[in-house]
Amino acid sequence: MALTRSEAIGLAVAAIGHIGLFVFLSPAMAPAPEKLVSTPIAVSFADDVALESSAPVISSEEEAAKKSPVEAPVEPDSAPPEPVSEPEPAARPQPAPPKPAPAPAEKPKPAPPSKPAPATKPAPPAKTAAAAPPSNPRSQPRRDVRPTGNLEGLDLGRTNNRNNGTASTPPAAMTGQAAADIGSAIQRQVQPCADRQVNPGPGADQIRVVVNLRINRDGSLAGAPRIVGHTGVDDTNQRYVTRVDDAVRAIFAGCSPLRGLPADLYDVPNGWKSFTLRYRLKS
């Protein structure tokens, strides 16, 4: 079985060919392509969690009119969302004529340049800035309000019109922010149980389960978690809904009692005595 010369040549050629094929098929030997690293970011939508807005509602037009002798150039019906921008038209002399606001009042002329009566001036910010309760941290900056020496307007700014101008906001209220904080606190605490759950199948992590928790004051669950509804169910993950529900029940039951929830928000309206949140299995 000694190699003849032609066999030796053939063997060499075959070896070269095999090595060439091997290299051709080994993309790993080429410089590795950069890998995309996507670090997950936890995002919580306050609107999703706080199902009811707890921001104070602006006082109605008549009350404002009562308190302020001067009709102010305001947008009466603009709801709380942007209290920051609203003081501006009052403080600036030439506010916003182009705005198609349905302001019933005559146009801003009276107030602007001279600011003659300090007593009349602060009224407009009072009415418009009524949307800026101190409990809402985002509404603070009142940039252009100039000191007038009159505190009446500031007082009015704190009022909640539901009680005709007297401050009615409870010391702790369930704002959207607070609800989001509680929601993420709960999710953080149940995460160890969620990690133990097996993902039922592809697409199951798209299902958002709306789950209602009845919680005792000590953080334990007063009853089994109730599944209120689902979103994100489509044809592909339809069949996993039941298993996702079971997993969610197991997660919340397994990692209660819940610790560290703010005690002062327990029994308030929309407090965490009965807390509804949307939950999603992480993949």
Partner: peptide
Amino acid sequence: LLLASLWTWAIILSFGFR
């Protein structure tokens, strides 16, 4: 199998020549 493939191709090539 890889060695078998190597030897197979060596035989194929040398046989072609011969």
